[in-house]
Structures are given as C-alpha cells and as structure tokens.
Design a protein around this nucleic acid. Structure first.
Length: 586
RNA sequence: GCCCCGGUAGCUCAGCAGGAUAGAGCAGCCGCCUCCUAAGCGGCAGGUCGGACGUUCGAAUCGUCUCCGGGGCGCCA
C-alpha cells in the first residue's frame, strides 16, 4: 500500500512537470510514512514541503496542486492537506479489513517475502572458545544471531548460520593442562592448581571421566610435574610464564598421544556441551567450522602468501607484519611471530578468505562489543586480499550486564564464577530468555536483572504476548461447548461488519506486520518485532475486553472470529521468528 | 591519548534515512470480573529528549564542541 501511494505521488509529480508547474529536472525523493495519529489518515507524505523551495511555491498550494493531479485509486478514500503542507491519505476500510482474509489464507507464511531474492548470506555468531560452558553473555549473541537468521530467511535470503570453533591456540593448551592437573589431583597427586588454569567444575568432571576411563595411565609424580617450573603468581612469579612452562612440561611428560588425550577430552566434552546447550535454546547451526582445519588445509600459509605476493607484508624484529595501516588500520599487525607461530589474526584472515571463497554474497559477523578494536584490521585484510569489504558486516553486540539483588554480577570463565546460559535457561525458561535477549537494540547495553527474570512474575512481557494467543485459542475452544461454529468463508464475506474502532485499529496493526518483519530483517533489528508484537497483543486484549466474540448473530460472530484468528496467527508467526513458543493455553 | 556504544518519565527502554501535541512497560494513584482465562482492560499523574552552538520552514533525530557512564586499544585468543 505504501508503494502504491508513492506511485500515485510520482504520477502526480510527472503530470505537474508536463504541465510546466514543476521543473522537469527535479528528482524528488518521495517519502510516505504511516501516520501516528488516526486523525491524519493512514499515510502521509511531506513531499510538498520538500519541493516547496526548489519549486518556489508555498507548500500548501503545491500540496493542493499535487492532490488535484493525483490519479484515482480504488483503495484511497480521501486525501487531505494538513498542517504546514502534509498530504494525508485515508485508505478505504474494506481495503484494510481484507488483510484478514489474506492472513487466514497464507497462515504461517503470512509475513514472508522474497525481497532477499535468495541471496546467499552467512551469519557467524557466538563462536565462543570451547574452554568452558556458554555464559549469559554468549546467550545474547546466540539469541540475536539466531533471530536475525530467522528474520532474513523469512524475507527470502538463503542463510547459513556458522559457529567458528577456536580449537587451536594457547587457550586450548591451557585447558588441556587444566584437565590433566585436575586428573592428577583426583589421583591424589599433590599439586597446586595454577592461577591461570580453568577452575570451573566442568574441568573436574572431565578429569573424573578420564580417571574412570584410563585409571592412572597418565599419572606422574608431583616432583616430575613441578620441578624447575617458574613460580606462579601467588609465589611471586608470573602466572603467564608459569602456565606456559606447565604446558611444555605436560607435552614432554605425556608425549604427543597422551597430550592429545587431555586436549581432546577437554575440547570434545565442552564443544558437545555447547552444541547441546544451543540446540536446546533453539539456536541451530548449519556449519561448525574448525580453526584447526585452517592450518591443516594450509589456508593460513596461503593467506600469508597472498598478502606477501600483493606486497603488504614486511619483516621486523624477526616477525612478519601485515601493513594494515595502508587500509585504514591505526597500526600494522603481526601475523607471524618471531617464534614462527601464526597469530590468531593470521587464522582469522585465512578464515575470512575462506568465507568469501565459499561464495556468500553477504557475510555477517556478530561479535561482542569488546572486539570492536579488531574490526579495522579484519576489514583491512579483506581489502588487501582484493575482496569487496562491503560484503562484510560486523555487528557488535553490547554486553548483557547481570544484576542480582541489585548488585552487578562479575563474570569470569577462568575463575569459574559465572552464570551459565544453561542455568539462566533453566531458571527463566527458554521463551523468556530468547525474548529478553532481543528486546533491546544490540548496540544497547543491557541490564539483565536476574531476580526479575527468574521470578515467574506477571510483569514478564513474553507472557503478555503469549497470553493473547492463548486467549484466542481458548475462545475457539469454547465455541463447541456453546454449540456454535466458526465458518471462515462466511466470516470473510462479512468482514465489512467489523466497524468498531477497536476492530479497524486491530486490522491496521495486522497490515503492518509484513513491513515490520522486512524492516527488522533488513536492519538486523529483532527488537522492532518485539515491540510490534507487544502493541498487537495490547490491541487484541483491548478489543477482547470491549467486545464479545461469541455472539448469536452468525455473520458478526464469523467475522469477529476471523479477525481474532488472524491476530493470533500473526502473533504465532512473530513469536516463531523470535524462537518463542505460542502456547494454546496458559 | 585514540576509538566504539550509551545518556529520552522515579526505573528499564522505544522513537533517531528531520516532520504535525515526545511513546511503552514497570513502579505510584483511581476505577472495571452475574460476561469468551483479571497472566486482562480503562483512566490519572509523571519529561529543560545530558548541556551549548550550528544547519533547516521544521531538530530527540543531522553537524561541531563539551560533560557523564560503560567498553576497547598485546608478537592473547
């Protein structure tokens, strides 16, 4: 309808240009918006005010000229000039009510479209290091990424969701050592656990399984483990040096095979846990991409070589540097350390190179806001590799700050004192968690009050929306008890009977749904849908309180039941996109 | 020091490709169940849109400066 009106205005402008009232060279940017106030009709355009200056005419006079030039349209009921020169369009009520028929016909496909034209899009999100369970901070990225994926699919994009598994690098070595040391402790080897080790209970569980499976096969005496290892922090040493020495000692004592056992026990167990956690949260991935395979497939070397061939690499102090400053970064970055090891950045260049090689038209990375300093160098690398950087969008999700008892909850994976996503899900439920996480714009810091979320209180906005859906289901259930029926075809014939203001308001809200879904998808802003659904639920509840649906008059009853069925269908569709269930009774 | 995000009602936040009297939830106060679930509805009250200047017919929205809060700036990942 909006496009329709833009069309009409365009025709009017053309007509005035032909008549010489407007300069033919004007290329107006026609804006049509939905009005806030019903007194202003359904749609409004500011075109007359925008053209008033270049046309050298008073905006209200120009508006009148445009209105006179507007072609007739079956859906437009009335056009008015208002205020300083707005043109307000009033749509026929029947046109609005026809949306009910459309919704009931299209069912759960109502709101989907093809604007994405099947474009291949990759969304990578969460990608937390597999060194411990997901915590509530990851939950926001998970819910946000999954919802953006659903939204984009709904409007016709071909979406792949991907998790980048950081299964290589120092963190994983620290995990392997942590597992082994816990294993030794459980075999009563007296060892002080390093400050920098992973202290979470899950490491104890992994170690216990190893004890079960292998007994003392990988045991060594405390002396062998600790002799000659530089002191840890509490003993006046450096915790980083201490843990690195322990990694080397572990590799030495266990050999390659033994070390792999520790390494994989940690990785496999934690990754499986993460995958299960996300699946239970309704977050599905198409691809789990291993960082290790980049090295195995020599993609890192290839990426470095490609940059070198293009002349963007130089050597300094024994390391290889990428001249990222040539591409807008604030300083150059090391990609191969003086010890010959590739940096994480090098892997990431290779990873992004591979993303583009896989043929995505658009690549979306959803990162925690703490990675924002990393954005320029990744974009720099992409430019240096000759790729089109506009295909890469990096969306930064701000932290979810937890509050418990009015106090901020500190989180740290290493210390083991965090609230896990699983814990949150169990306490507030998947529906509330999914909903809360996408309620805010992603760049908005989020205060997540655990006490409030945990309390199964009525304040919970997700219940409010679900309740609207359940209420409609309940009404339809009652029909049978009252020996009455709902004839959808008859209802569609009688939509014109829906003349109450509550009914038109509700229908207008329903008309907006596809526009909201499209805008939420294109802008990656799920919160728009959340706000829309709240408003829709509110309009339904208001209608519910104002009028009876189960009435004796067959025509009115069928028409009203069609309207509320359509409303509940839209609520169902919207909640589904958010990954939230729509219960039939509550 | 540089960079990113935020500063709108008591609290948590929408609105920000400039537009017609700035919205919602919660909290507060007052009403509404002989009637399809009161997990609901209606009403009242509540705001110098952090501040200043600028652009504009018009600024919460755009620009510059400034103040406050959060985060980031490694041969870590």
């Amino acid at each position: 309808m909006k496009n329709n009106i833009e069309d009409l205005i365009n025709q009017a402008i053309n007509k005035l240009q032909q008549q010489g009232m407007l300069d033919a060279s004007l290329q107006p940017n026609i804006q049509v918006t939905r009005t806030r106030d019903v007194a202003h009709g359904d749609f409004a355009s500011n075109i007359a005010m925008m053209l008033s200056k270049p046309a050298g005419k008073n905006p209200r006079d120009l508006a009148q000229a445009l209105i006179d030039a507007l072609p007739d349209n079956e859906h437009v009921h009335k056009v008015e000039i208002a205020g300083p020169g707005f043109i307000n369009f009033f749509i026929h009520q029947q046109t609005t009510l026809d949306i009910i028929r459309t919704i009931l016909e299209r069912g759960d496909r109502f709101g989907t479209s093809e604007v994405g034209q099947g474009e291949k899009v990759q969304i990578e999100f969460v990608s937390a290091n597999p060194t411990g369970p997901l915590h509530v901070g990851h939950g926001r990225g998970a819910a946000y990424g999954a919802t953006v994926g659903s939204l984009m699919r709904a409007v016709g994009y071909d979406v792949d969701c991907e998790y980048y598994v950081n299964d290589a690098g120092r963190q994983m070595n620290i995990l392997a050592v942590s597992v082994w040391l816990r294993y030794l402790q459980q075999l009563d080897v007296s060892i002080t656990f390093p400050v920098n080790g992973y202290k979470g209970d899950y490491v104890l569980d992994i170690a216990a399984e190893l004890v079960n499976k292998y007994g003392g096969v990988y045991a060594h005496e405390a002396k062998q483990v600790m002799n000659g290892i530089p002191a840890d922090e509490p003993d006046g040493g450096d915790k980083e040096i201490h843990i690195d020495a322990l990694i080397e000692r572990t590799k030495l004592l266990l050999g390659d095979d033994g070390y792999r056992v520790m390494f994989e026990a940690g990785l496999d167990s934690i990754l499986a846990d993460i995958a299960e956690d996300l699946e239970e949260f309704g977050v599905h991935y198409d691809v789990w991409y291993s960082e290790q395979t980049l090295a195995d497939r020599k993609l890192i070397e290839k990426a470095v070589q490609q940059l070198q061939d293009a002349g963007h690499i130089y050597e300094d102090k024994g390391a290889l540097w990428f001249r990222s400053t040539s591409f807008g970064d604030e300083k150059d970055r090391v990609i191969i350390r003086d010890n010959g090891q590739a940096t994480y950045f090098a892997s990431d260049i290779a990873y992004h190179m591979d993303k583009f090689a896989r043929g995505f038209h658009r690549v979306i990375n959803i990162w925690g806001a703490d990675h924002h300093g990393y954005v320029p160098r990744v974009k720099a690398a992409i430019k240096a590799l000759g790729e089109d950087e506009s295909k890469l969008d990096i969306l930064l999700v701000q932290f979810a700050i937890l509050y418990r008892g009015g106090e901020r909850v500190q989180m740290s994976t290493r210390s083991g004192s965090f609230v896990t996503l699983r814990e949150l899900r169990e306490e507030v439920g998947n529906d509330a968690a999914r909903f809360f996480y996408v309620m805010r714009k992603c760049e908005q810091h989020m205060d997540f009050d655990l006490d409030l979320a945990k309390s199964q209180s009525n304040d919970n906005p997700v219940y409010y929306i679900q309740y609207a859906h359940a209420r409609v289901c309940s009404v339809l259930r009652q029909l049978a008890e009252k020996n009455m029926s709902h004839d959808i075809a008859a209802g569609n014939e009688n939509l014109a009977l829906l003349t109450e203001s509550h009914e038109t308001d509700l229908a207008i809200q329903l008309v907006k749904y596809p526009e909201v879904v499209e805008k939420a998808a294109v802008n990656a802003e799920p919160h728009l849908l959340v706000h829309y659904l709240r408003e829709l639920a509110n309009q339904f509840h208001t209608y519910y309180n104002a009028h009876q649906f189960i009435v004796e008059d067959d025509d009115i009853r069928n028409a009203r039941l069609n309207l509320i069925s359509a409303a509940s269908q839209v609520i169902y569709n919207g909640l589904h996109l958010l990954g939230v269930s729509a219960p039939e009774s509550m």
